[in-house]
Design a protein around this nucleic acid. Structure first.
Lengths: 399, 399
DNA sequence: ATACTTTGTTTAGCCAATCGACAAACTAAC
DNA sequence: GTTAGTTTGTCGATTGGCTAAACAAAGTAT
């Protein structure tokens, strides 16, 4: 059964149009909403009053007049509800409580010493419980939970495969929904980050963007025609596994010469471990293997070998980004996750490689940006999933 | 100004829903339409009667009863109008007249001895004129013209750059609209082919598919969430120019190791020209350079060297297709254009390469198909653009 | 022949949007 | 300070499309 048109649908369209308009233009008057949306003044008036009734919009004082009655300004009431966003990483859990506008209200960080499913889930539940407890009184309370995970997730929110966690077939959505009796959204970490940057970060202006999460591996989230793209079974965006060297090294995925073998932390650390300066530092700090902090501090001190490595990563990022540009012709490429810490050293070779290689027409209106939400892309995006679902799936905007 | 909801919109949604239902399920009764769409019987009845009024639907005789009054069966009247579809190639123009269901009614083929813009446009106009003259009497006549071109087209239907035709900034949409006073759609040849296969070919069942046109170069058209994807300025899909060898040969586009340097006719012919058997054939037939017909006939006669070349092309196609699969996770990959003639010899290495390299999860519900419309993907897709526009942009479905 | 089904139309009622009128509230100019 | 003109927001009448339910028409089955 397809979507049919009736008055209900009409009202839903218009009501959410009015709400979105207020959300992105507040403070704004009823008259202005009418002008911007093209809806009749009377219609706007009645819809706004319903939104005020349901506490999603509030009237603030009168605004500036331009030669007539002063308008009553409206605000999106972003504290009418809250959402939980979680970034499940290999070595830690990052979780936040946000308001309906994606602002972070509370946060908690839990290191993980284990990847045991039971234990991790238990820590995860505790973190979410503690955040829910901190949510202020509000009309709708906590409206949902979103989680970004480093792996492939199916349409039911089951983690099919998370190589770095060594997880398989973990029905996380089911587990969390049962525990909290709330709507739960689980998605891949990169797609979640893309959603975050699209809604509340560097991608708010773009209808077509590619978000690239460069951490241990490389993941991507693609927004097209303002919509986050999900592949046929919900798992697209494994651009880290496209081959940039046909006869390159064998990757764990079965392919050869995958991009992430050349441009991720994995690639960086493997090469860094061979540098004598790094080995020296490792002995001094007692660390097993190099990490971003160590390499960034060496680069900041002018270590030429480390800077050279970063430049090489920049070049390889540029190679892969060129491919994505040629395929997608996006308005923005947004780089996120840990590798962005090294922005000062990778940026130049990256830009240069793209400028040299990408199709000229595709470069004309292209921006290459670094994530605006920093390391919070994923948590904010996860919360944003929950917020979006609250507005679409529930009946807030219908009755 | 955004889309707002009102009764007009509701009617438009429902009317086109009813029409689509009849289009893909005919013959079908009013009662069945009501069941399938979920619309009320009365609503369906009145909408169907309007559609009959406007001659887009016709009643045929009574159908089978299942213990009650016999239903009056409805047919989509595909002869209520016609569309022109054109495939503008480097060495020829292929044009067809189709009905509203994409069936080819008439066709014409014009060889091109020149690439001069004026002369080509003149031949093109003549071809279209002759097809329009052949269109039978009908309610709506010829509803529009679609053209697929081998190059980059902007949102105004201007050919910005067509390397193989050596064209730049040709406002083809403007030229044809002025000549014929009809709606004109110009788009890239690969995207047009994708539209054809999606609407009337091998892709009718898939919501996410990638069409790959392998001719002189390689172009792609991507359908996601049932919609053809257009990049930020209307030109996406240059997957032929993603690099599969980072330090490969320099391509005319500025990048290195582009896919089409290894897997297109360009690559095939260059290597074939070095084979002594091929050189011999060239001398015998008086041709300058190898073409598909020559190589296919050699392969059909069991020439091992040529078969080896085809197998190599199959492997490189597999490499690039693997990349597309990992990025898009489509339900179908559809191969089209001239290289498909060699299907028997490229198929095996292609499938094998993908099976070996693509992510296992992404292979589970994937089909790799060869175009169902054969060399007509582009002409049919072009006509389909015109038909779609007729139904959406015009007011047939509103008043 | 009678009872039951199925199809397709008609009528009444509902709901949401639009339009135009209007009151309230304000600015500016004389 | 009065008056004219503007802008805001509400109200009531009207419009148009959908639904639900009743009904007529046209079958089948026993």
């Amino acid at each position: 059964m397809t979507v049919t048109g009736d008055q209900h649908l009409v009202k839903q369209i218009n009501k959410s149009l009015v709400l979105e308009t207020i959300r992105w233009h507040s403070p704004i008057s009823r008259a202005q909403v009418s002008q911007v949306t093209g809806l009749n003044k009377g219609t706007v008036s009645s819809l706004v009053n319903e939104l005020i009734q349901s506490d999603l919009v509030r009237e603030t004082g009168p605004g500036q007049s331009s030669g007539g009655r002063k308008p009553l300004m409206l605000l999106f009431h972003h504290l009418a509800g809250y959402a939980i966003g979680v970034d499940l990483r290999v070595d830690s859990i990052s979780a936040v409580l946000t308001d309906l506008q994606g602002n972070i209200i509370e946060r908690t960080e839990q290191p993980l010493q284990t990847n045991d499913v039971e234990k991790v889930c238990s820590i995860l539940k505790d973190a979410i419980h503690s955040l829910i407890a901190k949510a202020p009184e509000s009309a709708y309370g906590v409206v949902g939970i979103g989680v970004g995970v480093p792996g492939i997730v199916d349409e039911n929110g089951t983690i099919l495969f998370a190589p770095n966690l060594k997880w398989q077939n973990v029905p996380l959505q089911h587990v969390l929904a049962a525990e909290f009796q709330l709507p739960v959204v689980i998605d891949n970490e990169a797609r979640t980050g893309a959603q975050g940057e699209k809604q509340f970060g560097a991608g708010q202006e773009s209808s077509n963007l590619v978000y690239i999460s460069v951490g241990h591996g490389i993941g991507t989230g693609v927004v097209m025609n303002k919509e986050l793209y999900k592949g046929s079974r919900g798992f697209s965006g494994e651009a880290g596994h496209f081959s940039i060297e046909t006869n390159g090294e064998l990757c764990s995925c079965g392919n050869r010469g995958c991009w992430e073998l050349y441009a991720s932390e994995k690639a960086l650390f493997r090469q860094a471990a061979r540098l004598t300066e790094v080995q020296q530092q490792l002995r001094q700090t007692g660390k097993d293997s190099p990490d971003m902090e160590l390499l960034v501090s060496l680069a900041a001190n002018g270590n030429a070998a480390v800077i050279g490595l970063f430049q090489q990563i920049g070049m390889y990022l540029g190679i892969g980004i060129t491919n994505l540009i040629n395929i997608f012709n996006p308005e923005s490429i947004i780089l996120g996750n840990r590798m962005t810490i090294a922005q000062p050293w990778i940026q130049e070779t990256l830009f240069h490689t793209v400028a040299e290689r990408a199709l000229p027409y595709h470069q004309q209106q292209l921006q290459i940006l670094f994530s605006q939400l920093g390391m919070d892309s994923t948590v904010v995006g996860a919360a944003s999933f929950a917020i979006s679902q609250f507005f679409t799936r529930t009946k807030v905007l219908v009755d």
